[in-house]
Design a protein around this nucleic acid. Structure first.
Length: 428
RNA sequence: GGAGAAGUACCCAAGUGGUUGAAGGGACCGGUUUCGAAAACCGGAAGUAGGUGCAAGCCUAGCAGGGGUUCAAAUCCCCUCUUCUCCGCCA
C-alpha cells in the first residue's frame, strides 16, 4: 500500500511511475478531493465532540452538586449535536473505506533502476553463470524420464486430485526431500533462521502481503462449515512476512532473515495451456523461501544479499542459470524491484524461472503496519520487507533431472546432494 | 465438541457510569550511596492513530474486536475473537 500523503503530494509523479506497469491509474486523481473532504469533516466533528465532552463533564459536576435542573438543561443541548456527530462519523468512515480500497488495489512504485517496458521482453539479463548443458545424445524432458521410470505419476494424480498435480515416487520423492533439506541447511548456515509456518492463513494475512483483495482468483479458499475460514498459502512469504504484522520491532534486531520450507498452492487461473507438461506449473508445489525485514536504507543492498543467497544454491548444484532484472511491466504487484533467477532447462531449450527475489520496500509493511524503532525513544518507522525463492524445489528437481541425465538413462546426483540421498550417486 | 474462568499500557495489576488515558508495583531513565555493582532511597518520563500548529502544545479516538444504551462507558447490554482450566476426541 502506498502512503496516501505521498500519493496526494506527488500525484502526477506517482501516476507516471505506475503507468510504466501498464494499466490506467488515473483513478488516483479522486484521492485529493476525498482526503480534503475527510479532513474538513474530521475538524468539524472533533470540535463537536470536544464541546460534547466538556458539557458532559459539566453535567457530572452539576449532578454532584445537586443542581439537577441546570444539568437537565445542558443535557438537552448535548443531545442536539448527537445526530450530526453520528452523520459525520459515518461519512468519515465511508471515505476511509474508499481510500483504503483504492490504495489496496494499487501496486507498488517501481524503482528507477528497472528497465522501463511493457512486458518481459524488456527484462534485462544481468549475468549468466555457466553454459547451457551440452549432451552428446538426445536429452529427454524430466516428465519423459520420470514417467518412463515410474517416478512421476501424473495419471493417477489426476484421478486422486486433478490436473496439475503429481505423485513423486521412489528416488524422485527422495530427491525432492533432499533438495529441500539441502537448501534449508545452506541458508541456515548463512544466518537465516528456519521457520515452519502454517499452510492455512486468514484473510487479514493474505491482505497484508498483497494477495487480497486483488488476486483472490489465484488462491484457494478453505471454508469449513463449522469452523474456520482460511486460505491456502501460495508461498511461505505470506505467513512469514505476516509474523510481525501490527508489531514494532527493535531496530537493533534488523535485519531479520528467515527461511521457510512449505508447500505452496496456486489456482493458476489464466495459465491454461502454459507449462502443461511436467512439474513446472502445479497447483501444489514445494518451495524454500527467504524473507527479510530491514531498515529502509538497507533494503536495496539486502536485495543483492538475498538474491546472492538464492544464487548460491544454483552454484552449489552446478546448474547453469542467469539473473534477470524484471522490467516495469513484468514486475510483481508488491515489488519495487525484482530479480528473477532462471535455470537452464534442456526440455525448453531455454532458461526457466526458478526464483523471484523482490524488494517490496514499505509497501507490505504499510499494509501490515510492521514498524521498528531505531532507539527506544525514536519514532516508529515502517520496515522494508523482502522475499525470494531459495529456491522452488520442484523446478530445481526438474532442472537436476534434465541437466544431470546421462546417455544410459540414469541421472547423476549432484555432489552436494549425495549425503542427502543416503550416499546414492546415481538414480537408476 | 461440552462446561467454567479471563482478556486494562512493555510486564503484573487497581478500577463497575461522571476531571480515570487510566491508582499501585515491576521494568525503564536520572540522581544519592559505592572503588564499582547489587540493594535501598529520591526524582522522572511514559506508548499508538487522526486532526491542528514553526514548535511547545492543543483537540479527537483508543482499556481484546465490533455493535448498542446514555448528556456521559474501561465500567451496563448484545455479538465475535483469543487465552486458561476440566471433560471428550485426535497425529
Amino acid at each position: 500500500m502506498l502512503d496516501i500523503k505521498y500519493v496526494i503530494d506527488h500525484l502526477d509523479e506517482v501516476i507516471e511511475n505506475l503507468s510504466h506497469r501498464n494499466g490506467d491509474y488515473n483513478y488516483l486523481r479522486e484521492l485529493p478531493k476525498l482526503q480534503q473532504e475527510r479532513v474538513e469533516l474530521i475538524q468539524k466533528r472533533d470540535a463537536l465532540k470536544n464541546a460534547r465532552n466538556s458539557l458532559s463533564k459539566k453535567i457530572g459536576q452539576l449532578m454532584a452538586q445537586g443542581q439537577k435542573d441546570e444539568a437537565e438543561a445542558i443535557k438537552k443541548q448535548v443531545s442536539d449535536s448527537k445526530e450530526e456527530i453520528a452523520r459525520d462519523d459515518a461519512r468519515v468512515e465511508e471515505i476511509d473505506q474508499i481510500i483504503k480500497e483504492t490504495l489496496l488495489k494499487t501496486p507498488n512504485l517501481t524503482d528507477a533502476s528497472l528497465p522501463i517496458g511493457t512486458d518481459d521482453t524488456f527484462n534485462r539479463v544481468e549475468k549468466v553463470v555457466g553454459e547451457p548443458t551440452k549432451f552428446d545424445f538426445q536429452p529427454r524432458s524430466h516428465w519423459d524420464i520420470g514417467v518412463q521410470k515410474g517416478y512421476f505419476d501424473f495419471d493417477r494424480a489426476v484421478k486422486v486430485a486433478g490436473p496439475r498435480f503429481v505423485f513423486y515416487k521412489g528416488p524422485f520423492a527422495r530427491l525432492e526431500r533432499a533438495v529441500a533439506s539441502f537448501m534449508l541447511d545452506t541458508h541456515i548456515a548463512h544466518g537465516y533462521t528456519e521457520v515452519l509456518p502454517p499452510y492455512l492463513v486468514n484473510t487479514e494475512t493474505m491482505t497484508g502481503t498483497g494477495q487480497l483483495p486483488k488476486f483472490a482468483d489465484q488462491a484457494y479458499h478453505v471454508d469449513n462449515q463449522t469452523e474456520g475460514n482460511y486460505w491456502l498459502i501460495p508461498t511461505a512469504e505470506v505467513p512469514v512476512t505476516n509474523l510481525y504484522r501490527g508489531e514494532i520491532l527493535d531496530g537493533a534486531d534488523l535485519p531479520i532473515r528467515y527461511t521457510a520450507y512449505s508447500s505452496c498452492y496456486r489456482a493458476e487461473a489464466g495459465a491454461a495451456g502454459r507449462d502443461t507438461r511436467g512439474i513446472i506449473r502445479m497447483h501444489q508445489f514445494q518451495k524454500v523461501e527467504l524473507v527479510t525485514f530491514t531498515k529502509p536504507e538497507d533494503s536495496f543492498k539486502e536485495l543483492e544479499h538475498l538474491t546472492e543467497e538464492a544464487e548460491r544454491i544454483l552454484e552449489l548444484l552446478k546448474l547453469p542459470y542467469r539473473r534477470v532484472c524484471l522490467s516495469t511491466g513484468d514486475v510483481g504487484f508488491n515489488a519495487a524491484k525484482c530479480y528473477d533467477l532462471e535455470v537452464w532447462m534442456p526440455s525448453y531449450e531455454n532458461y526457466k524461472e526458478i526464483s523471484s527475489c523482490s524488494n517490496d520496500t514499505d509497501f507490505q509493511a504499510r499494509r501490515m503496519s510492521i514498524r521498528f524503532k531505531r532507539t527506544k525513544d525514536s519514532k516508529a518507522e515502517l520496515v522494508h520487507t523482502l522475499n525470494g525463492s531459495g529456491l522452488a524445489v520442484g523446478r530445481t528437481v526438474a532442472a537436476i533431472i534434465e541437466n544431470y541425465q546421462q546417455a544410459d538413462g540414469t541421472i547423476r546426483v549432484p555432489d552436494v546432494l549425495v549425503p542427502y540421498m543416503g550416499g546414492m550417486t546415481v538414480i537408476e
